[in-house]
């Protein structure tokens, strides 16, 4: 066992400083409880003041996240968390903006925003708690569900190839791509810390079991493993690696150096009354 006293500055904030007094509605056993712990640990480790952090989400089990935090939160409509987070970060670059949600919210109804958030590379951290199911509407197949997973809505399975979020993120230009497992708080916390620190759009897929609709996912803890190779800044190497793994390799898989979205706002600007003179004939 080893311990790293890595933060030089005195840490005065604890994970509990980032938790609200609202009780999560998640099922006991749900991976999202651990993610809540991991995110609050990461924020404490980074010594970010709760009022300077905003957590934005859409709709779904994991999108209930903001209310459980003691940061500023925005719980919007289904699939639109990333645009809200993008607008907030561009308007307020001084804030640390996290976006949390699930696989249905992020990859199905919000899929287009996911592509463009990766492309745009605004300095956000997008944490998707992936349980391969729509939990809040009682367990329908999501984009990351295997094609043969049986459900009353699509008996025998959707027959549709599972969405590959990490591959898509990488191809679309995300600057940081990682996979974590909710049941491994230490590694997940470290990954979230790195994701928040990394400039540009950071995408973290956290495998987070749904014990109610996918009890089989309790076995994930026996499948996951630290990725056998170290992280890379070479997108083609990262692509090969991500496309050939079985979805259980954990760690930072790609850390790019693309400059983040440039927010151009002049420090000195003209008075509003100066605007409009161009219309004078």
């Amino acid at each position: 066992m080893s311990q790293t006293a890595e933060a030089a500055a005195p840490v005065t904030l604890t994970p509990n400083d980032y938790k609200s007094n609202i009780k999560p509605i998640w099922c006991p056993g749900c991976g999202d409880y651990s993610v809540l712990l991991e995110i609050t640990k990461a924020l404490a480790a980074l010594a970010l003041r709760p009022e300077n952090v905003a957590i934005v989400s859409g709709i779904g089990c994991s999108s209930r996240f903001p209310a459980y935090s003691n940061c500023y939160g925005f719980h919007g409509v289904h699939g639109r968390a990333l645009p809200v987070a993008t607008g907030l970060k561009i308007a307020r670059p001084d804030l640390t903006v996290l976006c949390t949600g699930g696989d249905g919210d992020g990859f199905s109804i919000g899929g287009n925003h996911f592509l463009h958030a990766c492309r745009r590379n605004v300095d956000l951290t997008y944490i998707v708690m992936d349980n391969q199911v729509y939990g809040m509407t009682k367990g329908q197949a999501s984009p990351t569900t295997d094609p043969d997973w049986d459900h009353v809505l699509m008996p025998g399975g959707t027959g549709t190839r599972a969405f590959q979020p990490l591959v898509i993120a990488l191809a679309s230009g995300a600057n940081f791509v990682a996979r974590a497992f909710s049941g491994d708080p230490a590694m997940t916390t470290d990954i979230i810390i790195e994701a928040i620190r990394h400039p540009g759009f950071s995408f973290v897929q956290i495998l987070s079991p749904c014990v109610t609709f996918r009890p089989d996912q309790r076995e994930w803890r026996n499948f996951v493993r630290q990725a056998p190779v170290p992280e890379t800044n070479d997108p083609s190497r990262a692509a090969r690696r991500i496309m050939s793994d079985d979805g259980f390799n954990l760690g930072i898989l790609y850390r790019g150096d693309r400059p983040p979205y440039r927010i151009s706002r002049k420090a000195e600007f003209e008075e509003v009354t100066a605007i409009g003179k161009e219309f004078l004939v």
Binding site: A54, V56, F74, G76, V77, R80, P83, V84, A85, T86, G87, L88, K89, I90, A91, R92, L95
Partner: peptide, 9 residues
């Protein structure tokens, strides 16, 4: 939704 985020900010 971007303007909602910015206005929230």
């Amino acid at each position: 939704n971007m303007i909602l985020g910015a206005s929230f900010g």
